[in-house]
Design a protein around this nucleic acid. Structure first.
Lengths: 331, 331
DNA sequence: GTGAAAGCGCTAACAT
DNA sequence: ATGTTAGCGCTTTCAC
């Protein structure tokens, strides 16, 4: 691999001058610039990131921590983040923490050690202090899909409470009277907030019945079991709001197995809007701008890194859309 | 952040000695070692990877290139790879190439530039030469889920032709006489080989009918459309082998929509064994050891990096399992 | 056993 | 406008 020294020799200048053209910084005459660029091309030279970083420059790398790569929501976010990072000349290191705070902390260390310029964190388990101690080390941080209330941690997410309200309201408008909610662990803020929205609307409509709320494991099986239990208890139910699409699909399957007339006997709405997974089953859903979430997170972080903008006070909530399909509208 | 110099001062030794204990290399007395370790702990010292790498050591980082993070097969592989890498003290940089050779080449450059110690490549589009030129740069490479026939490129995959045979054979055994195959782009070797297996078995049983083979886009929609077209053509079909589970699910949906009696009129078997996505629909499938694929790829690569083993001739095919479910066994 | 010092490839004062 | 040089934090010869 060619070094900056090789280039400087070939171009007959000093390394400093070469460095100047690499970084487009400081004065250098048109001619020398050209001959340097020429030399770089001849040698097929690319500056060594490691050396660069050691010499105090940015590494043009950001880290993205996600809690669960098996949840299709996150690959979608990751893909968007990667696309965007690449477009901006950044590399992305993707870390899957398995929703394990220990592992997450290891990742912080390794990312710092790898000298990333900033970190995007989607975590259910991180505490505000975790992030703040990162920020104190002068490494820009942005929280994704989660808000740390009461702390000055920039975040980007959607309005989950509003989403819960939208979903529930739609079921009410479809004429449902006994509406159940199947959701994931409530330590995950998004689920808690969707639940809040659910309760708000039902109370407002005098339809609230806490018996019809079930928390289960965040998986197809969880959704399946929760639905089965609800219905086997003999509860009268004509609508279900599932806290996310994975749960909704489990739910769909349970309804099927129990002999319910899909799309009619019991209306169903999910949450996430992961097209591929829900569209083909025609399950209504609250659709999050998943791609945008990843995209804007990177955009913002890069702005902070490049010091084009102070994002420390940025608190962004993106819009939600409701996708009405057969599972609530009927066949 | 504490540096090696801080540690050496606190311990009252030279940086060289500290370096020796960091790398467990060269002689250093028990006592000084202890006092150094002590100092490191007091200062909460971790060696700086960037500096280390620049000074000529390994970076303890490997790159994983995958073609499509939205295909659930790859997140599963990625997760395994990451787990394993972490256990071995390595970091994983995950790159999603979107099945785009251009992007892939960019990733090679960036990974080299980031000084990764090795690369795992799952690509449909890479040419043997691409990988060989990487290997010539002295960076260990291992191909995942693809074999570069006629080249000495180590790989780890499953036996797709055998898988195709297993699947088809099962349908034959279930009494199917008119068996269709719905598959993805044949430039993807795995699909080509599964098709080969399919044809082998049918020819052997005198059931081969090339009319019943459909290639479509690798997506739910692709599977859906392919199935619809096959059946709307009025073809008599009593069994379908879908080249992967995503196609199988699209297929399932189409059968449903067209009013076929699932699990009975037409038997269906998929491929991949992505539990979550196929299990709940009770679709039979050829199950690949997805996790192991990622795990062993990293294991092997790390062995090569640590020079514990020469893997250049490693060509590994992992075992497949058939999962028989209601979609072929009947209700 | 331990230390001094050169060097990995690059950046950024400071000179010129 | 360009060159000289001192680091960045670490590893590694080569002395002692």
């Amino acid at each position: 691999m060619a070094t900056i020294r090789d280039v400087s020799k070939l171009a007959g200048v000093s390394v400093a001058t070469v460095s100047r053209v690499i970084n487009k910084k400081g004065y250098v005459s048109k001619e020398t610039e050209e001959s340097i660029i020429n030399a770089m091309e001849m040698l097929n030279y690319t500056p060594n990131d490691v050396a660069r970083r050691l010499a105090g420059k940015k590494s043009n790398t950001i880290g993205l921590i996600i809690p669960d790569i098996l949840n299709p929501f996150f690959p979608e976010v990751a893909r968007a983040a990667e696309d965007t990072a690449n477009k901006l000349g950044f590399n992305l290191i993707l870390c899957n923490s398995d929703d394990d705070r220990e592992k997450e902390n290891q990742y912080y260390e390794m990312l710092i050690n790898k000298q990333v310029d900033g970190i995007i964190i989607a975590s259910y388990t991180a505490t505000p202090t975790d992030l703040i101690s990162l920020m104190n080390k002068n490494i820009p941080v942005i929280a994704l899909d989660r808000e740390y209330k009461g702390f000055d941690i920039p975040f980007i997410k959607t309005d989950d409470q509003l989403g819960g309200e939208l979903a529930t309201n739609h079921l009410v408008e479809c004429g449902c009277k006994n509406i159940a909610h199947i959701t994931g662990p409530l330590y995950i803020d998004s689920f808690k907030e969707r639940l809040d929205g659910f309760e708000n609307i039902l109370k407002k409509n005098d339809l609230y019945n806490p018996q019809l709320i079930r928390v289960d494991e965040l998986s197809l099986v969880g959704g399946y079991e929760a639905t089965k239990k609800l219905l086997e208890d003999g509860k009268e139910i004509d609508g279900i709001f599932a806290g996310n699409d994975i749960l909704a699909i489990g739910c769909y399957k349970a309804l099927n197995d129990l002999g319910y007339n899909l799309y009619d006997d019991i209306k169903l709405i999910g949450y996430d809007g992961l097209e591929a997974n829900v569209d083909y089953l025609e399950i209504s859903s609250i659709s999050q701008p998943t791609y945008d979430l990843g995209k804007y997170a990177v955009d913002l972080l890069v702005k902070e890194i490049r010091e084009e903008k102070d994002i420390s006070k940025e608190k962004i909530k993106l819009d939600l859309k409701i996708k009405k399909r057969k599972s609530t509208l009927g066949k």
